[in-house]
Design a protein around this nucleic acid. Sequence first.
DNA 1: TATGCGTGGTC
DNA 2: TGACCAAGCAT
Length: 318
Amino acid sequence: MTSTPATTTAPSAATETVSVVPAAETADGTGLHGPVTDWFAEHARDLPWRRPEAGAWGVMVSEFMLQQTPVSRVLPVYEQWLARWPRPADLAAEAPGEAVRAWGRLGYPRRALRLHAAASAIQERHGGDVPREHAQLLALPGVGEYTAAAVASFAYGQRHAVLDTNVRRVFARAVVGRQYPPNATTAAERKLARALLPRDETLAARWAAATMELGALVCTARGPECVRCPIATQCAWRLAGCPAHEGPARRTQTYAGTDRQVRGKLLAVLREAASPVPQVVLDAVWDEPVQRARALDGLVADGLVEPLSGGRYRLPQT
DNA sequence: TATGCGTGGTC
DNA sequence: TGACCAAGCAT
């Protein structure tokens, strides 16, 4: 596809790409579609899960890994993962502990367990193919509202409102006129996202990817680069003078000294171990015994760690 | 709806 | 330098 010149700011000015589609057919009462999708055509990153050969499984793997984890850290793990388990059936055939091990230091290792469980469910319920229907995607372990919409949209080109933190921020600014969206996704946001979704399926999928990318690259949380924004002149927040966020600040997540940190240390030892780890080795990672025991119990309860006889532990084999 | 859940980079 | 931030999900 040929991209329009960067100077294009109005839908009517474009002579090719999606901007030629009349606004009436795209539900674009805002005039945002053309500029945003034109910008995306020119500036979209070449990410492996966006290439055609990634397939639906590649898209799904990337979405799991990208939940709360930056692209730069996902890239190498994603490549290794897809090389080792190119189909859901390949992952389903492995022990869940191997998924946890391969997850490495991406964080939130329960995602690895859920991705493994999702692969098993895909194998059992869908013959090894990532399902196309939103409801079936949503029923998979670890797949919530966002991920179901993202896979349906990015992998299968369907028309869904894809509401991630980037899109929510872009809408909050460009449309609502606030610096940040609410802490939790609201009904009003879902309604707005549906209203802005282009009627056409292909355009809707492109819009979803484009708004996400705009939030990730330009309309960022801390330092938005409005000079590079294709809709800066229409942005409600800018037009209002960039008012500072009012309302409750997001609760800052503490980490040092929490169970989360202890769990991370314990699991790091188990990931690196080729054979079952004695209790005394795990005891060395944290000196407070009550918290240490609580963290280990939590990992076992979550299915991330398997206790063996003789006070030894390993990543789950079943 | 509020909370717990990893890890590391940025300013 | 410590608070903030990064394509959420499950409970």
